[in-house]
């Protein structure tokens, strides 16, 4: 059973998650089909910036986050931004979109100058997230858990971060049991995605390098 306290925590995170989305006008521009390689690159860069801003606004509303040391807040966001963005993109990608939209989006990513060997694991990840059929609560909590990972570089007060992450993991675990009573491995599968995200984060650093070379 989910306690009242856990309910409050979950609702606060869900509310923040749903309130902070990429602005519609920015998202819409992704679907305009005429663009040069340079325009594509600039738009994707702008999207990424917008995603980081949205991510920070969401994170500020995670109960307890702003009570952490300021430099630790930055270290956590810096260490998790790429992973949180991949999670959010996966959800956008798996959402039911009007016919053709997914293709336009996929085309853009493929034309971004990222080499195929990096794109493949990314789309595989999107697919594996889609297969989980997460509820909005699970998505929001998983993102919060990702951001509040204590072992990011430059985080000083690991214990303080752990104290925030632990209750979120507990609620997430309970939710998984309630939502997926016939899948005892569901929670473990969610955690497995976090490992996959770590690899993508590592890939991302290489993508940046290859982009610079290009």
């Amino acid at each position: 059973e989910i306690t009242k306290e856990q309910q409050v925590l979950m609702q606060a995170i869900l509310k923040a998650y749903e309130r902070h989305q990429i602005p519609q006008d920015v998202a819409k521009r992704l679907l305009h089909d005429q663009y040069s390689a340079e325009e594509n690159f600039l738009l994707l860069t702008e999207m990424a910036t917008s995603q980081v801003q949205v991510l920070v606004e969401f994170t500020k509303n995670i109960p307890g986050f702003l009570s952490l040391d300021h430099e630790d807040q930055i270290a956590l966001l810096k260490g998790s931004a790429v992973e949180a963005m991949f999670l959010r993109s996966a959800q956008v990608f798996n959402r039911k979109t009007p016919a053709g939209h997914t293709e336009v989006l996929e085309e853009r990513i493929r034309k971004s100058g990222i080499s195929e060997e990096f794109i493949k694991p990314m789309f595989n990840f999107y697919k594996s997230i889609g297969e989980l059929l997460m509820s909005p609560e699970e998505q929001a909590l998983l993102t919060a858990v990702t951001i509040l990972t204590p072992d990011r570089p430059y985080v000083k007060d690991h214990a303080a971060v752990e104290r925030l992450q632990e209750p979120m993991l507990e609620v997430l675990k309970k939710l998984c049991t309630l939502h997926h009573p016939h899948e005892p491995q569901y929670f473990a599968r969610l955690l497995g995605r976090l490992t996959e995200l770590r690899s993508l984060n590592h890939y991302h650093a290489e993508i940046i390098t290859s982009w610079r070379v290009n």
């Binding site: 910036t49 980081v52 801003q53 606004e57 930055i74 810096k78 940046i208």
Partner: peptide, 21 residues
């Protein structure tokens, strides 16, 4: 790396500011 600095700048600004205002 410069890319990380860019990310950090965006984070610092967003942490200080308030998009909702």
């Amino acid at each position: 790396p410069a890319s990380n600095l860019g990310l950090e700048d965006i984070i610092r600004k967003a942490l200080m500011g308030n998009l909702e205002e």
